[in-house]
């Protein structure tokens, strides 16, 4: 990076570190932080969408639809989330490939599952064997995003379902008295009011989502955990200009601090948002604000 980095062996401690921390692999390490942020930025709205659908179907008056919604919400409660992550990444991939296989190669007669192998015709492969490296990486990332969205969608559905039920019954009855249909009541009365009840749960969910991002590592993405393990490991002078001992502990300490700072900042921002949203609401929080001001 810097001009004096040509011969690292002769450098002083400070200069050595300034060279060491700006090598190409370290740039990939810093880039993987962006990957985590990108995952959060995509997953949060998608999961919220999944959650909204889940909550809507759980509220449905048609029994099978409502069972579906309730099962979706309930099943994450009982099963560890990382089991879901490991499951969905393979399962989704196989479901995609299998459906492409059915559509693209109808004349293929051999079974897809042969013993311990999962074989689809070559043109049904995802991504295609011939596609460049970045397509593979993007596909992996895409699978990870869907997996996160499904799992956290169930959490969000639970929160939103609770929020919908917390809206005072009288509000809905008034809407009915005005002659609104069920759909009108839902969109005009229930949905605008439920957010303030759902927000504490949703902000908790955001924290949980942040803390779940290291699990990307388990999904085979080259994320911050992957790079911290790679970069921290003992390096001898045969392979690198910057030999050092086992520094993985320090790399993970850095990640720990990064997450602490991230959750702390989110906490402060969400607290402000909550204060603003409760302003003037007929909840105990809003009441406390009114009294404090008076």
């Amino acid at each position: 990076m810097f001009s004096f980095c040509a011969d690292p062996d002769t450098l002083g401690t400070f200069r050595w570190f300034s060279c060491y921390l700006t090598t190409g692999v370290h740039m990939s390490f810093y880039l993987s932080f962006l990957k985590v942020l990108l995952l959060l930025a995509i997953t949060a709205p998608v999961a919220l969408g999944f959650g909204f659908l889940g909550a809507m179907s759980a509220r449905s008056h048609i029994p099978p639809v409502s069972w579906l919604g309730k099962i979706y919400i309930a099943i994450v409660r009982g099963v560890p989330d990382i089991a879901f992550f490991l499951f969905f990444v393979i399962a989704l991939d196989q479901v995609f490939e299998w459906s492409r296989h059915q559509i693209l190669c109808p004349e293929w007669t051999e079974p897809v599952r042969q013993g311990s192998d999962f074989i689809v015709c070559p043109i049904a492969k995802l991504p295609l064997g011939t596609s460049p490296e970045w397509v593979h990486e993007t596909y992996g990332f895409f699978l990870a995003v869907i997996t996160f969205a499904i799992v956290f969608g169930a959490f969000a559905a639970n929160v939103l379902y609770g929020g919908m039920r917390a809206v005072p019954r009288a509000q809905l009855e008034t809407a009915e008295a005005y002659g609104m249909t069920r759909r009108q009541t839902f969109w005009r009365i229930l949905v605008p009011q439920m957010w303030v009840y759902a927000l504490p749960g949703l902000s908790n969910l955001w924290m949980v989502l942040i803390k779940a991002t290291p699990l990307l590592f388990l999904l085979g993405i080259e994320d911050i955990v992957y790079w911290a393990r790679e970069l921290g490991g003992t390096k001898t002078s045969r392979f690198t200009d910057y030999p050092h001992g086992d520094w993985r502990m320090w790399y993970f300490l850095f990640l720990l601090v990064f997450y602490l700072a991230f959750t702390r900042v989110s906490e402060v921002v969400l607290e402000r948002l909550m204060t603003r949203l409760t302003h003037g609401q007929a909840t105990s929080g809003g009441e406390a604000q009114r009294k404090a001001a008076a």
């Binding site: 991002t213 086992d246 502990m249």
Partner: peptide, 12 residues
């Protein structure tokens, strides 16, 4: 902080 990172840090 995530438990996952805590495990890694503690192990190393």
């Amino acid at each position: 902080s995530p438990l996952f990172i805590q495990f890694f840090f503690a192990y190393f």
